[in-house]
Design a protein around this nucleic acid. Structure first.
Lengths: 191, 191
DNA sequence: CGCATAGGATGATTATCGTCATCCTATGGA
DNA sequence: TCCATAGGATGACGATAATCATCCTATGCG
C-alpha cells in the first residue's frame, strides 16, 4: 500500500470533523463536497474514495456532532457534585459562549428544521442519532421514573433549543443574554 | 395599460403567498424563483417585473408568514374569554394539527436557524419582523410589568419553537404528541 | 378600431453542485 | 531497487439556480 494503514481512517475522520463543523455553521447544504474537501486540504475528486454518497458524509457528520456535545454536556454534568447534573447541563447549554460557537454546538438549534425536512431515509437515520443523544442525556434529567426523566429531557431540550435559536437571531449580545438567562432561570426554578 | 390596474398588485400578492408557503415547507432556498412562479401559474422570466431581487421576495414572504400566524394566534387569544390569552396561544401552538401544517405555521420552528445564518442585511430586516411579531404577542403574555411579559414571550416562544421542531423530527404521532403535550403542560402550569 | 405599452414568456448566461471516469504518483512489499 | 496499487488530482457531465436581455401579445385608451 501506498500509505500507512491508518492513513485512510485518519483522513476519513478529518473529513467528517470538518463537515460536522461546516454543516452546523452553514446548514445542511452548506457542506458542499468541494468545500469540505478543501477544508481537509484535499480536492473534491477523492471524495468518493471515502464516502458512498454525500448523504453518507452528512449522516456521519451529524453523528459526530451529536456525539461531540453529548460528551461535553455529560462531562459538565459529572463535574458538578454540588448540584444535579441537569442544572449543570442547562447552565452550560444556555451560556453566551455556547450560543456563539455554532459550529461546535448542538445540532438541534443549528439544524432541527432542516433535519425534519430531509428525505424519509435520512430522517430515519437522523432520528436514530437523536434517540442516542436522548439516551445519553436522560440519566441526568430530573424526575423519579424513567418516563418522567424522558419527558423532562424533551421539555428542557425544547426550551434550550428554541432559546439558543432565537438568541442567534438577535443582533446584540444584551438581547441574546436576556433570552438565554430568561430561559435559564425559568428552567432552573421549574423542576 | 394591458391589464386592470389592480392586476399587478394581485399577482404580486399571489407570488408572495406562494413563496411564504414554500419557504416554510422547504426552507429558505427551497423557494426557487422558477418554482414559486410556477406555483403562481407564471414562468420564471416575469419575476423581476415584480421583485428587485430574490431576497426582496424572501423578506416579503417572511413578513407575510409572521403576520399570518400572528393573526391566527391573536384571534385564538381573543376568542378565549375563560382563560388568559397566553394559555389559548400555547394550546393552539402546541397542537398536533398546528405541528402538521408546516407551510402555514410559525416561521420560527420552520426557519429560525436559517434566518440566523442569513447575511447581515437580511438578518437585520428579519429581526425587524421578529420584533413586530413579539410586539403583537406580548400583550397576551403573563406578567405584571411590560418587561415581565417580554421575558415571558421569549421563554414561552422558545419552548414552543423547540418543541414543535423536535416533534417534527419524530417519526410517529404518538411520540410527537408526547413532546407537544409535555411542553404544553409544562408551560400551562409554570406561570 | 388600431396602437402603444406593460405584463409575461423564452431563452441565454453564469455559477454552483454532486457524481464519476480517468489519470497520476508516492510508497510498502518483494 | 522496482513495481503494483490505492489514495489523491483533474476535469468533465448533467442538474439546478439566479439573473437579465429580448421578444411577444393582449388590452385599455384615444
Amino acid at each position: 500500500m501506498r500509505y500507512r494503514p491508518e492513513h485512510k481512517a485518519e483522513v476519513h475522520e478529518r473529513i467528517v470533523k470538518d463537515a460536522s463543523r461546516r454543516v452546523r455553521a452553514e446548514g445542511l447544504n452548506g457542506a458542499a463536497v468541494a468545500a469540505v474537501m478543501r477544508d481537509t486540504g484535499l480536492t473534491h475528486g477523492g471524495f468518493y474514495k471515502h464516502f458512498g454518497s454525500k448523504d453518507e458524509l452528512l449522516l456521519e457528520s451529524l453523528r459526530d456532532a451529536f456525539g461531540e456535545i453529548a460528551d461535553k454536556l455529560a462531562e459538565a454534568a459529572k463535574r458538578s457534585r454540588s448540584e444535579p447534573g441537569w442544572k449543570a447541563i442547562v447552565k452550560a447549554y444556555l451560556s453566551l459562549e455556547y450560543c456563539d460557537q455554532i459550529e461546535r454546538g448542538c445540532p438541534l438549534p443549528a439544524l432541527a428544521p432542516e433535519m425534519a425536512r430531509a428525505g424519509k431515509e435520512m430522517r430515519g437515520r437522523v432520528f436514530a442519532e437523536l434517540v442516542k443523544y436522548k439516551d445519553r442525556m436522560v440519566p441526568f434529567m430530573p424526575g423519579r421514573r424513567g418516563s418522567d426523566r424522558e419527558r423532562a429531557f424533551f421539555v428542557i431540550f425544547s426550551t434550550m433549543t428554541g432559546a439558543v435559536e432565537i438568541a442567534r437571531m438577535l443582533p446584540d449580545r444584551a438581547a441574546q443574554e436576556m433570552v438565554l438567562s430568561s430561559a435559564r432561570e425559568f428552567l432552573l426554578h421549574s423542576f
